[in-house]
């Protein structure tokens, strides 16, 4: 289907003289696999907004799009890889980071961006996140946090707020949620930020910063899941949630990540919390092997890649 048709079809044809409407083209269309549209995300879902921001960040980054790869795990956010017009890998549940590790180290010219959800990155994939941050692998991790497992129908996630109802916490969640920026910071991530899907300009800028930052960059993006989180907890629809994000967010760049946990009563702290210089895994490896092996050290050059 031609995406232009999708957009026009929203209007009531009787009221619009289509001959006088200029063809509408989504400005980020070139970044998407148009032959895969329409996407699977629900109305009111925030993931599309995140993809839009990522597309804009890429378009204004000046990168050669042939050298940017997206790796996703499994879940609603895991489907991002399938829509980006880039080398894109939809891997297994929780394992996007180790896949990205191999891809990045075997092809050092690539910019690698991992796009996945809170359950994928912090429950099943939590250990990989810790070790990639510790190693300061040069990649950007974009985590869309919608507080639930959307793809499987709204089960409790490591980020689900206390007291919220989920299909596997039918009487209210009693597990404390994880403070993602604090975990990233403690594990050694060298760039850590949090925004919501309300903060689209800040998000575009943060994604560009995260891609340019040398080392392990982590951006948490709070995003509405109207179908399975908001509805079940009587929190309104996607727009209500974005309004909530707008009204309850407080900008605190450089905030101590211990203090940015998401609670029912405290404001949502957003901003860039961590920006530190630390050698990447690859730089550390090359420096150590040069120091110990001298001229005998041959940096990874993909000699076996016959092309």
């Amino acid at each position: 289907m031609n995406p232009t048709e999708i957009m026009v079809s929203d209007a009531d044809e009787k009221d619009v003289d289509t001959s006088r409407v200029a063809p509408i083209e989504n400005p980020v269309l070139s970044m998407l696999r148009q032959d895969r549209l329409p996407h699977i995300w629900c109305p009111g879902c925030g993931i599309g907004t995140v993809v839009n921001c990522f597309s804009r960040a890429l378009m204004s980054s000046g990168h050669d799009m042939n050298n940017v790869a997206v790796v996703s795990g499994i879940g609603c956010t895991g489907r991002v890889a399938g829509y980006m017009n880039l080398d894109s890998f939809h891997t297994t549940h929780g394992r996007s980071i180790p896949f990205a590790t191999g891809l990045r180290l075997a092809n050092p010219g690539l910019k690698v961006v991992v796009f996945s959800g809170d359950g994928d990155l912090f429950a099943i994939g939590g250990n990989h996140f810790l070790h990639a941050a510790r190693r300061n692998l040069d990649m950007l991790i974009v985590c869309v946090n919608n507080f639930t497992y959307g793809m499987t129908g709204g089960q409790v996630a490591p980020t689900t707020p206390l007291k919220s109802t989920q299909s596997t916490m039918p009487f209210g969640n009693f597990e404390p949620p994880m403070n993602l920026p604090f975990v990233a910071d403690a594990a050694g991530a060298s760039y850590v930020a949090r925004w919501t899907v309300f903060h689209i300009r800040q998000l575009v800028r943060a994604m560009k910063e995260g891609m340019e930052h040398k080392g392990f960059s982590f951006i948490e993006i709070m995003s509405p899941c109207p179908t399975l989180y908001l509805r079940r907890n009587k929190l309104g629809d996607g727009v209500d949630q974005v309004r909530y994000f707008k009204e309850h967010s407080v900008l605190k760049n450089g905030a101590n990540t211990q203090d940015v946990a998401i609670t029912a009563t405290d404001p949502i702290v957003v901003g860039t919390f961590v920006e530190r210089e630390r050698p990447t895994w690859l730089d550390s490896r090359n420096a150590q092997l040069t120091a110990t092996l001298g001229d005998r050290f041959v940096p990874y050059g993909g000699q076996n890649v016959q092309k």
Binding site: F89, T91, P98, F99, A100, G102, L103, A106, N107, G302
Partner: peptide
Amino acid sequence: IAIQGAAWGGAK
């Protein structure tokens, strides 16, 4: 899975 990422990156 790291080896599979590396295979798509071009390595044996």
